[in-house]
Design a protein around this nucleic acid. Sequence first.
DNA 1: TTACCCCTTTAACTTTCTTTAACAAGGGAA
DNA 2: TTCCCTTGTTAAAGAAAGTTAAAGGGGTAA
Lengths: 228, 228
Amino acid sequence: MKITKVLLAEDDSNLGMLLKDYLSVKNYDTTLLVNGLQALEEFPRHQFELCILDIMMPEIDGLTLAREIRKINPSIPIIFLTAKSQKEDILEGFRTGADDYITKPFSMEELLYRIQAILKRSAGSAVPRKESMYTIGNYTFDPLKQVLSFDNQPVKLTTKESELLELLCRHRNEILERNFALKSIWIDDNYFNARSMDVYITRLRKYLKKDASVKILNVHGRGYKLLC
Amino acid sequence: MKITKVLLAEDDSNLGMLLKDYLSVKNYDTTLLVNGLQALEEFPRHQFELCILDIMMPEIDGLTLAREIRKINPSIPIIFLTAKSQKEDILEGFRTGADDYITKPFSMEELLYRIQAILKRSAGSAVPRKESMYTIGNYTFDPLKQVLSFDNQPVKLTTKESELLELLCRHRNEILERNFALKSIWIDDNYFNARSMDVYITRLRKYLKKDASVKILNVHGRGYKLLC
DNA sequence: TTACCCCTTTAACTTTCTTTAACAAGGGAA
DNA sequence: TTCCCTTGTTAAAGAAAGTTAAAGGGGTAA
């Protein structure tokens, strides 16, 4: 079994040690750094395969650290740890290309699950990046202009419709996890936002039904898959 | 990278010491200067990364100080401290390129939050600086003269129209947050000013409709995006 | 001073977007 | 099967934004 090298940046040493020990038991070779500066210094000296970064850290915060790490390795998976209240951070995190984030407090199992999911994704193919234009069957979709076209007939999408469709596109032909989508777009993954997302899925399906080869499939209990 | 070096110019030594101590605890290396003259003398001798300037100071006020600092370092983030009543100051502050301002009295947490927000912004992709002339599709826009031209046909814009269009230009193809725009131009981000801004968006859209590739897109609940 | 003009704000009404609610349908486990 | 939880769908409520017109206010010229 291959051991994965993990960089863990967490300034709360209680939590940090706890996580490190837990991950080590689970066969992740974890290096704990207690602030962003140290993490940045250590990063080039190891062959890390995954980063887990607390956002709130002294000297160099997790977001800045992530940007620096991305300059060195643009494709390494990054998971952020943040307080639920720091909504701004979460949004900003996704903009810097976070692969996932977990809001404190969280369970160890939760973290482990996310780690496995991300490693599986990035092992197969590269992490889906943002594109400026997507082709969905016979449709074309411009996420910046928020326009979906079929047969040169453009339809203006609302902000939320566009955001959700873009996420589906970035994960085309693989599962877009409900929680991931909710946290990316709605920030809070509570019951009501989940129902709101269901409504938007219905709408997107309506927009996309002109091409029978395009389907948004539900994966019970997990999320949706855009087939095209 | 290291601890952020902060210049704090505040003539009230009670408040000054309090802020300095608080920021130092929060890992900002803070230098307190008790008047604008001293601050200006010290500025070139340090590698400051952020300035917090009280506006009301003897000898050299914060606004003048900011202008001088900008001559030396045009991109350093500046936060002004001012009394809520001094709206003129705030306006003038934003004109000299303030990144934010805080009205007294304020909480330490509030200040800290703003510092973090600004450093985050200027660390990543800095907010595009002012330019003397913008190209918007087939239009050209001179913010100083407040003139928008299409096909060599100039249209004179009002002050508010011009200010709003300039902000949109500086954030072209990304979201200009409502609150940011309101605070920059209208100072107060209350309901009525927000409605006033809506009216100006309508006007700008009218001016810009000669070029179909130029669009001011609304991002529901967040702000506007100028596409061009 | 008064009258006028221009800019900005306020107001009223309309439209669009998002969320909430209610009920129907489907899937998985015991 | 039955029960429970998830998802599908539609409608309506609620909130934000679009639009137009008119009121307010400050400055300037007669």
